[in-house]
Design a protein around this nucleic acid. Structure first.
Length: 728
RNA sequence: GCCGAUGUGGCGGAACUGGCAUACGCGUGCGACUCAAAAUCGCAUUCCCGCAAGGGAUUGUGGGUUCAACUCCCACCAUCGGCACCA
């Protein structure tokens, strides 16, 4: 843990008397024990490249080790002024790509070429081989809590002790003593598994029935727990054996199995006779009922090797319908002792980690598993879930053997249940399935999903997993696509007054219910929109809420300006200025909503309301427009006002108003006059004023005259509809 | 340390594609209404100098490009978030 502390100074000690030899140039390298190397990653032993890795550089500098440059920055300085990546300096390692230097036969190559060449060279000399390291992080889904969805598994001691029989079927002309078979048998027997490797008939001409008859004599029945391995010709034989005898198999592994998509003529070069080739083809061509096989086999894996001289890689397509995992090796040839393959650790690992028979799924008719109804639940001392202490619930019967079993007491995190609710929403009353294909097709994917930061980290991860899983098993129709959402956004946090994150311990939590009780839901809603940019974290400000409240009150009070409607002498006169502003506001709010700039949309509404309030009296048409514009922001108020002023149906069903493009542009503008880029005056002019006229106005302005007096005008810049800049 | 984001009045923030910096709201001050207070309405409000007219400075800091920079370029600083030495 100590090494994760900030900026820890590197320490190290040299292993005197030990040197490593660089296998490429046979030079000696000193060996050090250092504390900045992660033991858990790779072998825990590393080769340091001081000139091109920051940490190695630091280490080398501290202990005065040679720093040899082997990569030179070689970018082309394309455009003048473009910032170049920096190369190595005495203060800093260069970690980028470039051209190899001081590197013998790879000098002059680019980083990518050099990597390729040196890898190939090492492989040819059998000094090393290419490998890929993956960065993985452990991820725990379960939680030690009372609440949360129970995981429907029980643990049965009796079932855990069950050891399946392992049946291994060898290949053409094979026997139990060849290849990795004896090693595998011993490994598994050491772990008290029963391993059967029958010695099957050898002959140039063989028929599948020759082998199947012999296998039938083994007395393997469907009551046996079974693992099956088939090597080469034993692959198709294994499939047929399982199918013919209806044997449930926990795990099937086919190692370089024979398939149907080859004519096997290439085997001649390896001294296979025509009869042997015919035998192989005969085994490979027997049709396999993969649907049935899949039902019998719980899990399956196929092993192939890229350099297998006998089995071409394309054979894996013959087994596609088995839906098994496929593992492709680079250098295992035909997985035989002939090529020195007398051990196969991968297969051992696969069995040992594959199935734990102690864990038995709750049978479908007993789903869902519900939490026990108890008066109280308390944490345990053992670190187990509180559920573990509720003995009555924990003890149950094993669905498999009927013996005593214990339930899983961890539960799923509460995110689990919320990972697919949006699909259920499409068909919430469906009793047969979580949602019908028809409804899913209609609604999914979600057009727009918004949530906070937490949502983006966790819910996004889980819900996509859930969705993709349901999609893969066909529960979500293909038409919906393999992603649950079209668009995702996340809103910012509302911080407590004072700018810190709201939390009970800080005592700065604001309860929205209180705000609603005091100011109404509309005020809260408009305030949240108004407080700042959507995605930004902003402190709560109670005084700001008051401002929004006043704004909504002002909207309400505007009704007073409509009273004159009945007075014929004072019929509301439409103000051209207001008319223009109304249309500009329609445009602005429409655009702002699209761009999720709700704060400026509210601001535009406020400006409009201020202008309306400044009128002697207000045309009802303008007020009705305001109500419509207000609807997305203050839905309750807008609905009530809408009903009061002539709406037959809900204001929320109304069409968004259209603006008149002619009214959006101003007729007159304030033309800015600058001297050397500084604003000195502004002139009220027609918006479409031309260059000559504008310059005339500008130079004739009294204020401007004062500034240019006695100065030489170098040039005058005119920006249409905006300004005139006089350079003196 | 690396990666990312952000930095504009007393505060939340606005500014299209480089073209009036500080919209809108809060707060504050003054005034109207009131016996008084609250509410409401009006005016003012970036800072500095000035009674005023007016002038100067200003978008984290320093520099650059441009007639013109919150906006583009370079360097630096600070704050927030993520990651934890994965060679």
């Amino acid at each position: 843990m100590e090494r994760t502390e900030l900026q820890k100074e590197k320490i190290g000690v040299e292993l005197k008397g030990i040197k490593a030899i660089n296998p490429v140039n046979n030079e000696e390298i000193s060996v050090w024990v250092a504390d900045y190397v992660l033991t858990g990653y790779g072998t825990g032993a590393i080769m340091a490249v001081p000139a091109h890795d920051e940490r190695d550089f630091e280490f080398a500098k501290k202990f005065d080790l040679p720093i040899i440059e082997v990569v030179k920055y070689s970018g082309v300085p394309a455009l003048a002024g473009e910032n170049l990546p920096k190369g190595r300096t005495p203060e800093r390692a260069y970690a980028g790509e470039g051209t190899a230097v001081n590197s013998g036969f790879i000098d002059g190559l680019s980083t990518a070429e050099a990597k390729e060449k040196i890898t190939k060279w090492l492989e040819e000399k059998h000094i090393g081989k290419k490998s890929v390291n993956y960065k993985l992080r452990d991820w725990v889904f379960s939680r030690q809590r009372y609440w949360g969805e129970p995981i429907p598994l029980v643990y049965c001691e009796k079932c855990a002790k069950r050891k399946p029989k392992i049946l291994l079927i060898h290949g053409l002309g094979g026997n139990p003593q060849e290849n990795w078979f004896p090693w595998f048998k011993k490994q598994m027997e050491d772990r008290s598994y029963e391993v059967i490797i029958p010695d099957l008939p050898k002959s140039e001409t063989l028929y599948p029935k020759d082998w199947l008859n012999k296998l039938a004599k083994l007395n393997i029945t469907s009551n046996d727990d079974l693992f099956v391995v088939g090597h080469s010709l034993g692959g198709p034989a294994a499939c047929q054996f399982i199918l013919k005898n209806n044997l449930p198999v926990h795990k099937l592994i086919l190692v370089a199995p024979v398939g149907k998509s080859s004519d096997w003529q290439h085997l001649k070069q390896y001294d296979f006779s025509d009869k042997e080739i015919a035998t192989i083809a005969r085994f490979g061509n027997v049709p396999v009922d993969f649907v049935k096989l899949k039902n019998l086999v719980t899990e399956s894996t196929l092993y192939f090797s890229e350099d297998d001289p006998y089995i071409p890689l394309k054979i894996k397509n013959d087994y596609e319908d088995l839906d098994g995992a496929v593992r492709i090796f680079k250098d295992k040839k035909h997985f035989g002792s002939h090529w020195g393959i007398t051990e196969l650790p991968d297969i051992l690992e696969e069995f040992l980690t594959s199935l734990n028979f102690g864990w038995v799924p709750v049978s479908e008719k007993d789903l869902p598993v519900e939490l026990p109804k108890v008066k109280k639940y308390e944490p345990t001392d053992t670190g187990e879930s509180p559920l573990a202490a509720i003995e009555k619930w924990v003890k149950t019967k094993c669905p498999k053997c009927g013996g005593e079993a214990r339930r899983e007491t961890d539960t799923m995190p509460n995110w689990a249940g919320s990972s697919w609710y949006f699909m259920r929403y499409t068909d919430p009353k469906n009793k047969k399935e979580f949602a019908s294909g028809k409804n899913l097709k209609y609604w999914m994917p979600v057009d727009w999903y918004n949530g906070g930061m937490e949502h983006n980290n966790l819910h996004l991860l889980y819900s996509r997993f859930w969705y993709k899983f349901l999609y893969d098993i066909g529960a979500v129709p293909k038409e919906c696509g393999d992603e649950p959402y079209k668009k995702r956004t996340s809103h910012g946090l509302i911080l407590g007054e004072g700018g810190e994150k709201m939390s009970k311990s800080r005592g700065n939590v604001v309860n929205p219910d209180d705000i609603v009780a005091r100011f109404g839901a509309d005020t809260l809603r408009v305030y949240e929109m108004f407080m700042g940019p959507f995605e930004q974290a902003i402190p709560w400000d109670e005084k700001g809420v008051v401002g929004v409240f006043r704004f909504l009150e002002r909207v309400w009070k505007l009704q007073d300006k409509l009273k004159v409607k009945s007075d014929k002498l004072k019929v509301a006169v439409e103000s051209p200025k207001l008319e223009r502003l109304v249309h500009q506001t329609i445009k602005k709010i429409g655009e702002d909503i699209e761009a999720m700039k709700f704060n400026t949309a509210v601001s535009a509404l406020m400006i409009l309301v201020n202008e309306m309030a400044a009128q002697e009296n207000l045309p009802i048409t303008n007020y009705q427009l305001l109500i419509t514009l207000l609807a997305p922001f203050a839905p309750h108020l807008a609905e009530e006002l809408g009903e009061k002023f002539g709406n037959k149906k809900s204001v929320h069903l109304e069409k968004w108003p259209e603006y008149d493009p002619k009214l959006v542009v101003e007729e007159e503008i304030d033309l800015i006059v600058q001297i050397n880029g500084k604003m000195r005056d502004s002139v009220r002019v027609k918006a479409d004023i031309g260059e000559e006229e504008a310059k005339k106005f500008a130079t004739e302005s009294e204020k401007v005259k004062k500034w240019i007096e006695g100065q030489k005008i170098k040039k005058i810049i005119f920006v249409k509809g905006r300004l005139v800049n006089i350079v003196v």
